[in-house]
Design a protein around this nucleic acid. Structure first.
Length: 605
RNA sequence: GGGGGCGUAGCUCAGUUGGUUAGAGUGUCGGCCUGUCACGCCGAAGGUCGCGGGUUCGAGCCCCGUCGCUCCCGCCA
């Protein structure tokens, strides 16, 4: 007989009755009836009830066992009496009668119970992650994560993609997030950077003549965390393809994501292929966001009502002043909101003022006999009718108004749309639990108001949607033209979460240098910082493009969790500390000397 | 860097208007119990009320500071 087990704790069924078996696992739960002790034994595979009676030679040992001890039991599988069958347990028809009992390892009093579903503070859960991982919910999520990654690999390979590894120690890059730096021992004063993404490498893989690359790629960014954003490190399904248009990328990626979500939907619905494509400008107007949640009904689509409020007959000064200063008024329809109490509207206004730092969130309730609410009296009947027509309102619907500079108004309207939709419990018809869309035609540049300069608005490596020769002739003088340029840049969005960002890349050195030039980076800077890739483009670069869906976020969606730590095996806390391993940590003076590093502690404020 | 919330037994939490010896559940330890599966019953141990200062006759509770955790904003091409 094997030293530890002949079966797992998830194996035993009625068919095993009579066999002598050996199980090893953790003592999940102990029920002591004096003369009779039940031990639920747990391993990765399941739970099996074991029982020991006083006349058993193993009784004293087994009776002493406590929660989370690791033990090995040996004995016959017996059928449980009919009235004691546990239907909640797959092995519930049988139990193991303990004849010999061995303790493999004991457990101290637990800081966190494995049994049950008590909620524990993050600090405890992270410090004792190995205990938390034993618990059912987290254990299940981590297995789900593994299955999702395995499925992605299968699907990508089936689509003709090949997985390649790219370096973890690479060069720091100027744009984008803050790099994690690794000091070089051999080159005093110089640093490697951990890759924010294998962006340049995957493009170089295309230049190198490979095609259809993918990787479950670790990415590192030294930025602050959020519930849906791990500090430090995360994983992407990184992919890149040669000789493709934007549509080819979509066609390659859609079935992978759709198939994945269908596979793990577990009864939930997935929006059908092809995913809706929404230009950035339209998304910002209709949803107030570049990551719209399409689970809300189209009757809640935001509309621009600047013209209506600018009509001479409207006497509402607050909005008129905003418009006079270049602002806009956006209206968020709230279907059926007339049934809500006054407090519903007041709370939303308070929310807009406190959390969104807005001047307020005005509203009009359109009853059958006319508009109601604090600002309705400033809006004459013809304009009210125009608003009703434009927003396609029915009696009993309301409109909320966000008035501000275009970006701020869009942002407030977008947040209000989500909040109102959630409060009213409104759902699109047909409703999909996972509602995907592509956001396309992102602007190439944006105006940086603080520094009064043109910035890349997204990815400096994407191809502008602009005539090649005309683009090369652009200068900083053509500000409006430059700010109007769209890029072959796209995002995949699901349920209001940005899953991935991608682009058809700029593979032409002259366009790339001009693109950086327009954002205020001289040729020297581009040569110095992206010389490797730029140089590669001078030796025959194929047109190429790709994207990189965030794996952690996909797992989060499919697991139905709202925090990445619930789907990450060993996460750090929000301050980027590993409480279990004690990272980051001090290092020895010797280590620092070897790296030519001296610590200059921050001055205490 | 900024804002909100939280911090009481190993763990999860309660603790009234500032008022006697700070409680419950769970876990731990001891006793009883032969069919439980959140077993049950009896008992015990277990507390720097995060830390420091202040107000007060009296502080878990009020005030100030500080530390930790968490959520959000900034940030995340």
């Amino acid at each position: 007989m094997h030293a530890f087990r002949t079966h797992t704790c998830g194996d035993l069924r009625k068919a095993h009755v009579g066999q002598n078996v050996r199980l090893s696992g953790w003592v999940h739960r102990r029920r002591d009836h004096g003369g009779l002790v039940f031990l639920d034994l747990r391993d990765h595979y399941g739970l099996t009830q074991c029982v020991v009676e006083p006349d058993s030679p193993a009784f004293a040992l087994a009776d002493a066992a406590r929660q989370e001890w690791v033990v090995t039991v040996t004995g016959p599988v017996v059928a449980r009496p009919a009235e004691t069958v546990n239907e909640a347990l797959p092995s519930g028809e049988v139990e193991v009668r303990i004849e010999t009992f061995a303790v493999q390892s004991r457990a101290e009093e637990l800081p966190l119970q494995v049994f049950g579903d008590i909620e524990y503070p993050e600090e405890t859960r992270l410090k004792y992650r190995f205990l938390d991982l034993r618990r059912e919910a987290l254990h299940r999520n981590i297995i789900l994560r593994s299955n999702i990654i395995a499925s992605l690999r299968r699907r990508m390979i089936a689509e003709g993609f090949t997985e390649f590894q790219t370096p973890i120690l690479t060069a720091s890059s100027p744009e984008g997030a803050r790099d994690f730096l690794v000091p070089s021992r051999l080159h005093p004063g110089k640093f490697y950077a951990l890759p924010q993404a294998p962006q340049q490498f995957k493009q170089l893989i295309m230049v190198a003549g490979f095609d259809r690359y993918f990787q479950i790629a670790p990415c590192f960014r030294d930025e602050d965390a959020r519930a849906d954003r791990s500090p430090g490190e995360f994983y992407q399904l990184d992919l890149e393809m040669s000789f493709v248009t934007q549509d080819d990328v979509f066609t390659a990626v859609e079935p992978v994501l759709h198939g994945l979500f269908e596979e793990f939907a577990d009864g939930r619905s997935v929006s059908p292929l092809p995913f809706k494509r929404i230009p950035y400008a339209e998304a910002m107007l209709k949803y107030g966001s570049d990551k719209p949640d399409l689970r809300l009904p189209p009757t809640m689509d935001i509309i621009d009502v600047t013209a209506e409020f600018n009509d001479p007959s409207v006497e509402f000064k607050a909005f008129k002043n905003v418009i006079a200063q270049g602002g806009v008024v956006r209206a968020i329809p709230a279907p059926g909101a007339a049934a809500q109490p006054r407090s519903f509207f007041d709370k939303l206004n308070d929310w807009a003022r406190s959390e969104m730092k807005a001047a307020g969130l005005g509203y009009v309730v359109f009853e059958a006999d006319g508009g109601k609410g604090p600002i309705a009296k400033f809006i004459p009947d013809p304009v009210q009718k125009a608003l009703i027509a434009k927003a396609k309102l029915k009696p009993g619907d309301a409109l909320f108004f966000a008035a501000d500079k275009p970006e701020k108004a869009a942002k407030l309207a977008g947040a209000a749309r989500l909040k109102i939709g959630a409060e009213l419990g409104l759902k699109a018809v047909p409703y999909y639990d996972f509602h995907f869309c592509w956001i396309i035609d992102f602007p190439m540049y944006e105006w940086n108001e603080d520094e009064k300069k043109i910035d890349f608005s997204h990815n400096p490596f994407s191809m502008p949607q602009f005539d090649h020769d005309a683009f090369l002739k652009l200068t900083g003088e053509d500000k409006d033209t430059v700010l109007g340029i769209k890029a072959f840049q796209y995002d995949i969005v699901c349920n209001g979460i940005e899953l991935s960002s991608g682009a058809i890349r700029n593979h032409l050195p002259d366009v790339m240098i001009k693109a950086f030039d327009l954002a205020g980076y001289g040729r020297e800077v581009v040569e110095a910082k992206f010389g490797g890739m730029l140089n590669a483009f001078r030796y025959g670069a194929p047109p190429h493009g790709g994207t990189a869906p965030g794996i952690d976020r996909m797992v989060m969606l499919l697991a139905g969790e709202e925090n990445l730590r619930e789907v990450t095996m060993f996460p750090m806390n929000q301050r980027a500390e590993d409480l279990m391993m004690g990272a980051p940590s001090d290092v020895t003076p010797k280590q620092l000397r070897e790296l030519h590093i001296r610590i200059v502690p921050p001055e205490k404020g």
